[in-house]
């Protein structure tokens, strides 16, 4: 297994090429092309802003301003995460030709999915930066140093889950359908459109059990809230969990690897 993990590093040029292909192919033929990477999250933000500022303004917490920016801090990493996991559930089946007909390292496929979505996420960050400047939100420059750490933790967490999901869907196709609903539930069970402080004490315990809560709170504390980044202990703990999850995912993937060529 460790041997295979090292091999994954050797495939980095293949991964790099495939990520580039993924990004190129996605917007090929559309008029706005690469700008969709910026426009998509903005449109999504517009939908949520419309719901909580125009349709249901009463639900919205009053003390959080600007609310759109608050949502965006959670929405952007969430999109990276959920798109990655959902796409990963189909990636081996879609790439069946490669797995069946070419000597191809299958784990490259879910990894490419996660990385391509990460690029989209990173392209969304300048929008947040622009908004921070526009709203004159005070940001502590030293806290920004934590940002790469949060991204790295999320990367490992997402990779682990993508590996598990992609290898299991080969055997259990139903997972794809379950996953769509599960991700919607997970979204609302994460303090993205509402602040953690709004949750009742009993709900708070449940939210604390959700790993993604700590990623979102980290993003919010670093980028949005004025005040010290107090969540770092949670973040580092989650980092440990993520690495374990990644290794576990890789182990499962490796175990099921030989069955892919026959099952996809």
């Amino acid at each position: 297994m460790l041997h295979n993990l090292v091999r994954l590093l050797r495939h980095r040029s293949l991964i790099q090429t495939l990520v580039a292909r993924e990004l190129k192919a996605r917007y090929r033929g559309s008029v706005l092309g690469f700008f969709w990477s910026f426009i998509n999250p903005l449109l999504l933000l517009l939908v949520y802003w419309f719901v909580f500022s125009v349709v249901l303004p009463g639900i919205r917490p009053i003390d959080i301003e600007p609310y759109a920016l608050f949502m965006f801090c959670g929405l952007l990493p969430w999109t990276w995460f959920s798109s990655s996991v959902l796409e990963a559930s189909n990636v081996l089946i879609a790439g069946g030709n490669l797995i069946k007909k070419v000597l191809f390292p299958a784990e490259v496929l879910p990894v490419v999915t996660v990385l391509a979505n990460m690029i989209h996420f990173l392209l969304g960050l300048p929008i947040i930066a622009a908004a921070l400047v526009y709203f004159a939100v005070p940001v502590r420059p030293l806290e920004l140093l934590w940002l790469p750490v949060v991204v790295l933790v999320q990367l490992f967490f997402t990779l682990g889950l993508a590996l598990i999901v992609s290898s299991l869907t080969v055997h259990f196709r139903d997972l794809k359908d379950i996953l769509g609903n599960l991700m919607t539930f997970w979204f609302f069970a994460t303090p993205i459109i509402y602040p953690m402080s709004l949750a009742p004490p009993s709900g708070k315990v449940l939210l604390d059990l959700n790993p993604f809560t700590h990623l979102v709170i980290s993003y919010q504390e670093i980028l949005f809230y004025d005040g010290p980044f107090g969540h770092w202990k949670w973040l580092l703990a989650l980092g440990g969990v993520s690495i374990v999850l990644f290794l576990l995912g890789y182990f499962l993937f490796d175990r099921l690897r030989d069955s892919f060529a026959e099952e996809v």
């Binding site: 292909r21 192919a25 090929r28 790439g95 030709n97 069946k100 007909k101 070419v102």
Partner: peptide
């Protein structure tokens, strides 16, 4: 292995 030619070609690019 020439088992299937062009496996892995992406049609859009």
């Amino acid at each position: 292995a020439l088992i299937e030619l062009g496996a892995g070609f992406h049609p859009e690019i």
